[in-house]
């Protein structure tokens, strides 16, 4: 059997060799610095681990679900630059989701779905791929279909404005892990908001067609906007414990940011009422009612989750 390298006279060619080197360290995501290296992972005093875990799932699911939606743009964007930018945002959110799901699992393993004995599936993947749709805690704004490019831009603007304000506060969390995740996320979300803000302005003042589409996209999303500022019981409890953020508390700041973008773009705030919950009553935990944070989603959510989970669920003992 020939040595692979003996057939490579050119120095450039060694890009191809080394494939048989038994070295796991070159794989993507494993040779990067661990963003949580050296961070204290113990749950702070006075914090209920189960509540903390649920809170992490909420923030993690927001990121995972929107990342899944944005990745649908891959090979479909208006031009290559936007294809790359939307993938970037999807990748950032996916990174945030992974850290938050892992934190949820570490805080309270009982919320991680059980798999057959000996399954090598890691906790973050058990949570992402083996929970049912009704166990996802994301806000519904993150899950609705992309619509056109204008609606996608409007969603990124709304979502990143909200999440940036939230993460700025969360970076002071008593939970060292959440604080570190938020501090890292602030830089990413600042870019996402900037990207969306520039495109929002461009589309608002570009052509009649782009403006018409932008207004329609904003109108379509506005019913999901108020939900982002309703305080779920878990959010209230974690905020009181000094580890989470009460979204009602950031509403004024976020509103000011969004108002500024709307004003400079010459766009009026949509006159569209918030979308109701799903159960017709307040949630059974005295929460905001039956909305995304309680696992009550839109019909599109279920289909999206089904696609996301189909391969993983077929191989509960698989390793990837």
């Amino acid at each position: 059997m020939p040595d692979v390298r003996t057939h490579e006279p050119d120095e450039h060619d060694n890009a191809y060799s080394g494939l048989l080197v038994n070295d796991a360290h070159w794989a993507f995501g494993t040779d990067f610095e661990d963003p949580l290296a050296g961070v204290d992972t113990t749950v702070p005093d006075g914090v209920d681990p189960a509540t903390l875990a649920t809170y992490c799932l909420m923030l993690g699911d927001d990121a995972l679900v929107l990342s899944q939606r944005l990745a649908e743009w891959c090979s479909n964007a208006p031009d290559l630059e936007e294809d790359i930018a939307l993938s970037n945002i999807a990748l950032d959110l996916l990174g945030q989701a992974r850290l938050l799901l892992a934190r949820a699992a570490a805080a309270d393993g009982s919320q991680v779905p059980a798999l057959p004995d000996g399954s090598p599936v890691p906790d973050e993947d058990r949570l992402a791929f083996f929970r049912d749709g009704v166990q996802f805690r994301n806000v519904r704004l993150a899950e609705v279909p992309n619509g056109d490019f204008a609606q996608t831009i409007a969603r990124i603007l709304l979502f990143s404005s909200w999440r940036l304000a939230l993460f700025e506060e969360l970076s002071h969390s008593r939970d060292a892990v959440l604080a570190a995740v938020a501090a890292k996320g602030v830089k990413e979300l600042t870019y996402h908001r900037d990207f969306a803000g520039r495109w929002f302005l461009t589309l608002a003042r570009g052509t009649d067609e782009s403006r018409r589409r932008l207004l329609a996209g904003l109108d379509a999303l506005w019913p999901y906007w108020a939900e982002l500022f309703e305080t779920h019981e878990v959010e209230r409890a974690t905020a009181l414990a000094g580890v989470g953020v009460d979204p009602a508390g950031i509403a004024a700041d976020v509103d000011a940011v969004v108002e500024q973008v709307l004003a400079v773009s010459g766009v009026d705030r949509p006159a569209v009422p918030p979308l109701a919950g799903v159960q017709g009553s307040k949630g059974d935990k005295g929460s905001t009612g039956s909305k995304g944070r309680d696992g009550r989603h839109t019909e599109a959510h279920s289909r999206m989750i089904a696609e996301m989970q189909v391969v993983a669920r077929a191989h509960p003992r698989g390793q990837w």
């Binding site: 993507f28 993938s87 990748l91 996916l94 990174g95 599936v121 973050e124 993947d125 696609e307 391969v311």
Partner: peptide, 16 residues
């Protein structure tokens, strides 16, 4: 449909 979050990140970054 990537079966793990790590593989999803790898694949999306590759296509990018």
């Amino acid at each position: 449909r990537a079966p793990s979050l790590r593989r999803k990140a790898i694949l999306l970054a590759k296509v990018q």
